[in-house]
Amino acid sequence: MTDTPVLSVRNLVVEIPTRHGVLRPVDNVSYDIRAGEILGVVGESGAGKSMTGNAVVGLLDRPARITSGEILLSGQPIHTLKGEALRRLRGKKMGMIFQDPLTSLNPLLTVGDQLTETILEHLGVSQQQARERAVAALEEVGIPAARSRIDSYPHEFSGGMRQRVVIALALCAEPDLIIADEPTTALDVSVQAQIVALLKRLCRERGVAVMLVTHDMGVIAEAADRVAVMYAGRLAELGPVREVLTEARHPYTSGLMASTPLASQGHERLRQIPGAMPRLGNLPDGCAFHPRCEFAQDRCRQNPGPTLDTCDGRAACWFPLGADRKQEVGA
């Protein structure tokens, strides 16, 4: 494994100009994903998780756009690419998996058509070879009798099988990076586990870097190697999954963990974080989380707010939780 991360996001800022001012759904976000590694990105709806993923593949819906920061794919900057150059990278270097397998597949084209089209687009192979590869791709994601099912239409597959087809489509041109945007949210719980296991297996076997966007802490705990917690467009915490889940440093992460039901907890009442995430157009000064934080102090309400860089590199918090939690950092 080389030292260059497959994906390196550096101080990424995505802005949406509106009549009431400029919104920042992604604000100064930085992280790396190495080959064979799964980075989980969690947060509430609207925290900027999906927006980060869309920014990476260059599929931001107008008028959202990247205004500063860098996105490096295997060391090459891709945030400056446009149109045709970017299209060639999509599918070939980076694949994307969407939330709802029912709507991600074109209902009027067979699964084989959609696979071979993608393969032919990116790999210089013949029609015949493309079809063979398509069958292999379906087999790899665990579709039984792939050869006979390749000419089926999407509606002839069940939800879980469709998500496998979606994964096969995202992987068929052998990309180095997969961005999975809530890949399990629309599925039955029993199928979720299978899909997560499949993603994990493909990541290990192929050495693909995976960015797993989800709001499901269970999926993160199951699949991710490292986790990035996002809040109001900013990174709240970033670290190895074991450490973040067992000893959260950011009060938000800790609150998120406490509000996740675990079987081991018995019948204790779940805690919840008071209040709601602030609207992007109406962010408080300082740390965006301070109005909901039980540990908030004066410093938290003042600009500039805490970032990973100005704090301990793990949690964007002036007063991180943990052994020496009363110790103020960066002061």
């Binding site: 593949v57 599929l59 299209r87 060639r88 990278l89 999509r90 599918g91 070939k92 694949g95 994307m96 969407f98 709802d100 709507t103 991600s104 597949l105 074109n106 209902p107 009027l108 084209l109 959609q114 089209e117 993608t118 687009e121 990116h122 979606v166 489509l169 995202a170 041109a173």
Partner: peptide
């Protein structure tokens, strides 16, 4: 605006094919 068009874009399918193959038929 459908997801499958977005997904086709994310796979790097050419605009021509997206417009005339994926979208037009639907």
């Amino acid at each position: 605006r459908m997801d499958y068009i977005r997904f086709a874009r994310a796979r790097g399918i050419r605009e021509k094919s997206i417009n005339f193959r994926h979208a037009l038929k639907n």
